[in-house]
């Protein structure tokens, strides 16, 4: 690769950056699509959970001096517990209501969380600098940050793990059954209120993992919440609602697209990429939103 024209190197670098960023986006989105597919809830607080986990990781490691890995795990646990409580205590009460009501509840919860974070942490950008956050290696002319590589590995591992867990574990079976037909699930003895909350907690835990990763590799502030929710929405629609491997593919694709746009388009257009992808998806496969291919057998009265 040495001596390659710089245009090619730039393209490769953009592709690599896109894939690495896309892994993170996939991790952000996989919990969102899971909750949407199984619970039929569009969780507008998802981005806030991501950022909350990022702050918790930051505070625990940078301020309290905890090992970053331990800090991340703690943040995940806290966000998952919060998710369980939110679903069990609030969202379960409106689970059978038309989709707008849960939507409003999550919208309110997201706003509340965001404002609380502004109050607690201010709205300045944060970046966690650790001993290994700057290490990278070069392949040819392309620069590979080590931590970002790890975040891609984590994203692939977790999304695959979620897909396998849904398929082969006892609770995974229960989650899928509840997503397909709530009453039939109760008739085989599945405690639906608990499984709903567990599903939401799993989605929140995935948001937490993404947040911990964001704290390690990226820059964040309370303003990021909306961006993460929007990107999750786009990825869920593109990848198929409830489809966890679709979220992985969609996340990687969106990451690459945004990176290429960053390379070749004027700045103001880059932020419109997610919207453009969403529009395109809606035109090309509107059943992505209304058809709910994964859990189309769901009957809820």
């Amino acid at each position: 690769m040495a001596g390659a024209p710089s245009a090619v190197t730039d393209l490769l670098q953009a592709l690599v950056d896109g894939l690495l960023e896309g892994g993170l986006l996939a991790l952000v989105a996989v919990g969102f699509t899971l909750v949407w597919g199984v619970l039929n809830e569009i969780n507008l607080a998802h981005g806030a959970l991501v950022v909350l986990a990022a702050y918790l990781t930051w505070e625990l490691s940078a301020s309290a001096g905890l090992n970053p890995l331990l800090a991340g795990l703690t943040a995940i646990a806290v966000v998952a517990a919060l998710g369980y409580a939110l679903q069990r205590g609030l969202l379960n009460l409106v689970a059978r209501a038309p989709v707008l009501l849960p939507l409003l509840v999550t919208f309110g919860a997201g706003l509340l969380l965001r404002d609380a974070m502004v109050a607690a942490f201010s709205s300045d950008d944060r970046t966690l600098v650790t001993a290994y956050s700057l290490s990278a290696f070069r392949v040819g002319g392309v620069y590979l940050p080590v931590l970002r590589l790890w975040s891609l590995v984590l994203a692939v591992t977790l999304t695959t793990g979620v897909a396998l867990g849904l398929r082969h574990t006892r609770h995974g079976m229960a989650i899928r059954a509840v997503g397909m037909d709530r009453d039939a699930a109760r008739l085989v003895g599945i405690p639906v209120r608990h499984v709903y909350a567990l599903t939401f907690a799993a989605g929140a835990a995935l948001a937490g993992a993404a947040g911990a990763m964001v704290a390690a590799v990226g820059t964040f502030s309370p303003v990021s919440t909306d961006v993460y929710t929007l990107e999750s929405f786009v990825i869920a629609v593109v990848g198929g609602i409830g489809n966890t491997s679709g979220a992985l593919a969609g996340g990687l694709a969106l990451g690459v697209l945004e990176a290429l746009a960053g390379q070749y388009l004027p700045g103001e257009l880059v932020s419109a990429i997610a919207f453009a992808v969403l529009l395109l998806a809606l035109v090309l496969r509107p059943q992505g939103i209304v058809g709910r291919a994964r859990y189309s057998a769901r009957v809820d009265r």
Partner: peptide
């Protein structure tokens, strides 16, 4: 009691239209 708890006590209901998990 909740349906899932009655089921756990040994009563199973096979409902109208069977309600199988069609995708499974």
């Amino acid at each position: 009691l909740a349906a899932e708890d009655i089921m756990a006590l040994g009563l199973v209901h096979v409902p109208e239209r069977r309600r199988l998990f069609a995708g499974l």
